[in-house]
Nucleic acid binder design. Structure first.
Lengths: 127, 127
DNA sequence: GTAAAAGTTGACGTGCACGTCAACTATAGA
DNA sequence: TCTATAGTTGACGTGCACGTCAACTTTTAC
């Protein structure tokens, strides 16, 4: 686990572009330090980027990713009220994820069915 | 299972807007018949809409949804070559779905961890 | 020291998935 | 028959997530 990363280093590791990292910084998702003018990304930035890209793959907006990542950030101190609210949010978030889970399940099942019919047809009418 | 649906009927059932259904028609995803000027949606349209919205929730583009839905359409006759190609596409598609699956799994695990810490903190420092 | 490579800040462009009028038409119920 | 209700076709607008220059500065390698 390295300590710092350049912009191209990080963007290559996660198959993103520098533009995307700068955009995420504009949106407040990343907070790289500077050495002169050059951005220096920390392991925290790396983790947040990784989580953000994961969220994007699942169809979340960048804003939603930020909210969730901020909320889950372990370095954030919280009082009891905030902790309860976080638990509530986790329940909500879990529910939407489970919905996506079911969507994927349904799609996989449909695909299995199509594949089955496909193989049947191939056996029935070979080339 | 009804035979036909009006545009508002279908859009309400799936929590979409009429605009969305017309847009999907423009994109070639839906093919409603007409009674006069009025669109009449069939069960086939209903199924395709359902699949499309499911795909959208998973982050696919409308174009991708259309391609997949068209490919899987059971009413399409196919020769052996096309059947083999379909099997190939199914494998690919399954792979990307499994990736999303893992993304969700990873996120759920992260959430469990956060929740655990959250409950711990609540016990340690009650209001 | 100098050339190449990497980085920077604007600023405008783009593709997607609709939203949102406007202006009009068709249809069903009182 | 009149009127509300639902539907139609444009056409333009919008929010998001970057892509794509341009013009410039910095850093690294030799």
């Amino acid at each position: 686990m390295k300590q710092t990363y350049s912009i191209t280093e990080l963007s290559r590791e996660f198959d993103a572009t520098p533009r995307t990292l700068r955009f995420y910084e504009d949106q407040g998702l990343l907070n790289p330090g500077r050495r002169g003018m050059t951005r220096v990304y920390s392991d925290r930035d790396r983790t947040r980027l990784k989580l953000a890209l994961r969220g994007r793959r699942l169809g979340l907006t960048v804003e939603e990713c930020k909210e969730i990542i901020d909320m889950y950030d372990p370095s954030r101190p919280r009082n009891a009220r905030q902790l309860l609210r976080l638990c509530e949010k986790i329940r909500e978030h879990r529910a939407t994820l489970l919905e996506k889970f079911r969507d994927i399940e349904a799609t996989l099942n449909a695909m299995d069915e199509v594949e089955r019919r496909c193989l049947e047809e191939l056996l029935a009418a070979p080339a």
